[in-house]
């Protein structure tokens, strides 16, 4: 008997509602995580390069800590260990958001720091020579150039973060992977479901990658 003849693709449309709510959750989780990661990552990066050791050292520690811990472990830690050792009890969704954002912020911080450091020293000096304060020179001259440079690596983080959200299914968040895996458990249609899952992730990730390419082209500045 032919394997392909035996496939039953009808499990996909008949579970479309479940999968669709998974898609929505995955997309929301990705967006919120990315926004939080950009905010906290930028703060961490700025603290890191500000020149005051009392600020740069803790920032470096936080960044390196969250970059070193595997995301899966981080999620387990936030979801299982935190409530066991403290009074903090987070819903699966919030725990996922905290874990993903901690990890995302660390990666974003590294990328933004590298972007800031890649701007020539002369640019800052030209700004200071005009009489700008250090913070104004940073905000008007260094940072806008750094932001344009970090868009491609940020896009890479974005897309891999989008895929990494699949890990949150392990702590019971009903994201796309979670939905697909529960359909699989009910129907035993492993091949169909996993194929559909891959296709859905691809369809979702591709436009995001394209969008960031476009942003990158729009914002690029010739030196």
């Amino acid at each position: 008997m032919n394997f392909l003849d035996n496939l039953d693709w009808s499990v996909i449309p008949s579970n479309a509602d479940l999968l669709w709510s998974g898609v929505q959750l995955t997309v929301v989780l990705t967006f919120v995580t990315m926004i939080l990661s950009i905010i906290f990552g930028t703060v961490l990066a700025v603290l890191r390069v500000c020149g005051y050791r009392v600020l740069s050292w803790p920032s470096a520690f936080v960044v390196n800590f969250f970059r070193s811990v595997p995301l899966l472990l981080l999620l387990f830690w936030v979801f299982y260990v935190l409530p066991a050792t403290t009074d903090i009890r987070l819903s699966p969704f919030l725990a996922a958001l905290v874990g993903l954002s901690a990890c995302g912020s660390a990666y974003v911080a590294e990328v933004i720091r590298a972007g800031i450091l890649s701007i020539r020293k002369g640019q800052r000096e030209a700004a200071l020579a005009l009489g700008m304060t250090r913070s104004k020179a940073f905000l008007r001259i260094t940072m806008p150039q750094a932001v344009r440079r970090v868009i491609p690596p940020l896009a890479t983080i974005w897309v891999s973060l989008f895929k990494d959200t699949s890990l949150v299914s392990t702590i019971g968040v009903a994201d796309l992977s979670h939905a697909a895996l529960s359909v699989r458990a009910q129907t035993f249609r492993v091949f169909e479901i996993l194929t559909a899952l891959a296709v859905i992730y691809l369809l979702l990730a591709y436009p995001q990658a394209k969008l960031t390419d476009w942003l990158h082209r729009r914002l690029r500045v010739e030196e």
Binding site: R120, G122, Q123, E125, A126, A127, A129, I141, P144, Q145, R148, V221, E222, E223
Partner: peptide, 13 residues
């Protein structure tokens, strides 16, 4: 005090 640099240092953005 105005300063002019060897490598111009215009703001590219």
């Amino acid at each position: 005090i105005g300063m002019v640099f060897q490598h111009f240092e215009l703001f590219p953005h």
